[in-house]
Design a protein around this nucleic acid. Structure first.
Lengths: 365, 365
DNA sequence: CGCGCCGTTGAATCGTCGC
DNA sequence: CGCGACGATTCAACGGCGC
């Protein structure tokens, strides 16, 4: 696994390392536009009675009056806006960000994301298969957390491996609610005393879905609140490069040991079901040029209507000339039409979609 | 059913009526501290542009109504803060509020609630059993909406009928994620032309759970964005008093007719919420995400043929890629194959069908 | 009457490339 | 940046109709 190999705009990108320090300062020291994906699990230490600290570690005396409550939100908002701004600088133009939180902080985070210019693509609910019950019976069992997935701005491109996620879900497109168990059992990291090493360790299954869905092998994934390194561990498994930032020495130690034990999956297993969009374009005219279809030959649609192939790869119907797509759309009175699946030709008595010929060309490429 | 009977702090409370006008002005005309619960379904500010077509080229009937148009986030925020302030004035000290929204607006709403001094009790996810798919394959199916439940402030009392909800949930503590179908079929109200009367009518099952859980019979429930009156209809069924506020004459008319047809204490709404579930579907990909099977690992059939597991939950054999079922069917030359019983993996020298892993997941759900 | 097939529909921020 | 061309893309529920 490579370390310190990719060059950024200004300085070297420290790949597959856990950087020590405050995430905002560290992010500001990294080269602009160098990261494909950010996954962030920021602290949400709001409203925790008895042990309330602001994100800057100053202690909050009391939250029993309205003013102090507001000041606490204001401090959290400032912290959120600051780290989101630093994160935004690091993202490539076509990069994306995931942030996870609960009702204590996710509304602050979502608003700050929108205000900073990020473009929300989905909010995704992690529905915990085995949440902790609400012991006092005063509220609903808090059985989910919310993730926000956002691109760098409206109109920005982003990576979405639609077909791979659909495959993960056995052929049905992946929904915005994910049912996954919380992290426990052997996956839950323990410290020297046998206590859990981190209070909110995220399950690897969650990161697996995030990274399979919104990155490609070789992409750089940054986690500014690395904790015990679930993001790094799954990135390594999946052949992605990671950069972790973590303030606490104890977490960095646990994370480094954990990741060193991870064995990456073999490369061939990382190739994932591809979308047709990724396939090379084949102009319809090539079918004519190659003699797979002859000028003058008739194509048919499902309703038995036909159009004639011309030497330049256009079709001519009763009252329209144009591409396979245009003539199809015209006949259907539809705004658009995929001519490849719409039109058929006859060979040895059988009616075959012309897409078969395109597949043949692609397989030879 | 009573109307205009309860006395507020200053003036008469107009019970079981639909008030015409802007909700902020109307709320400001009602007596302070007079309402037990507010349920609000404000405009979502969807920001839709252009048309969207299904793969069959039919056009999606978008929510493009004038009431959902805002010029900016700032304008939406001002609107939200204003109506939340007016609502807060109306609430009794031990009252509570529910607001529903999607990722377009819910983060603005949640932040505004917190800033106004409300105390969030839960965020509750409505997981739609039958959402509209993502037709272009560019994002996750937007399969849920989010509701925020908040008391008037930290430490305020609020109504929570724990046992009633537990009973509704077959004896298990009610969770923060509710699986309910969207409103269609006979429940969906139509106008004179047979078109849907309102673009975003909420299902009665949703309101049923909200009102059973957070009000008592005789409580006053206010809905400032009444629409076609689902809140009023369910309140009447359950023996609660309602106050609706709605700007659009057409919606008020439909709502009034609808509510007049409601018989109180009908049990039908109860039946709606309790749909018996078949065994939950477990996608094979979950075994991979959860680390029960490793990408790169080999599965075997009874004849000793094998295929390799990939990171997206597909298999790759000698000459075929696809789902566990597809690859199995291919190897057998059969039209179909149950991959769950067909494929086996090795653990500690023993060969085990993968269905064992599926059973394990189901037992955790 | 029942079953299966077909058409319709739902709070949707739903392309990308080349010229 | 605008414009035109290419061409990719859907799940569950319900109602109506035909057999």
């Amino acid at each position: 696994m490579k370390t310190k190999t990719k060059m950024g705009a200004a300085t070297t990108l420290p790949l597959n390392q856990i950087l020590a320090g405050d995430c905002i300062e560290v992010m500001n020291s990294l080269p602009e536009g160098s990261v494909d994906l950010i996954f962030a699990d920021p602290p949400y230490n709001l409203q925790l009675k008895g042990d309330l600290h602001r994100p800057d570690n100053s202690r909050v005396d009391a939250v029993d009056d309205h003013w102090d409550q507001f000041s606490s939100f204001a401090a959290y908002d400032k912290f959120t806006r600051d780290w989101l701004k630093a994160a935004r600088r690091l993202l490539k133009p076509d990069g994306a960000i995931w942030v996870i939180g609960s009702y204590h902080n996710i509304f602050r985070v979502g608003s700050a994301l929108q205000d900073a210019g990020y473009w929300i693509l989905n909010d995704v609910v992690w529905r915990k298969a085995n949440p902790m019950p609400n012991f006092r019976g005063k509220r609903f069992t808090n059985a989910h957390e919310t993730m926000i997935w956002a691109s760098k701005g409206e109109g920005a491109k982003y990576t979405f491996n639609y077909e791979a996620l659909k495959a993960l879900n056995e052929g049905i497109q992946m929904r915005s609610d994910w049912v996954l168990p919380i992290c426990n059992g052997g996956e839950r990291l323990k410290d020297e005393n046998g206590e859990k090493a981190h209070p909110t360790q995220k399950p690897e299954s969650l990161l697996h879905r995030v990274l399979v869905g919104s990155t490609n092998p070789g992409d750089v994934v940054l986690d500014p609140f690395f904790g015990t390194g679930t993001t790094g561990a799954v990135a390594k498994m999946l052949g992605r490069d990671y950069i972790g930032i973590e303030r606490e020495t104890a977490y960095r130690k646990v994370a480094a040991e954990r990741i060193s034990r991870v064995r990456p999956f073999e490369k061939s297993a990382l190739e994932v079901t591809q979308s047709k969009r990724a396939e090379p374009r084949v102009p319809f005219g090539q079918l004519v040029e190659r003699g797979m279809l002859r000028p003058g030959e008739m194509l048919m649609n499902a309703r038995g209507q036909s159009a004639k192939v011309r030497a330049d790869g256009t079709l001519i119907g009763d009252d329209i000339k144009g591409s396979i797509h245009q003539v199809g759309a015209h006949l259907e009175g539809a705004p658009s039409c995929n001519g490849w699946t719409y039109w058929h030709f006859k060979r040895e008595g059988k009616v075959v979609p012309i897409d078969v010929l395109r597949q043949q060309i692609r397989s030879e490429m």
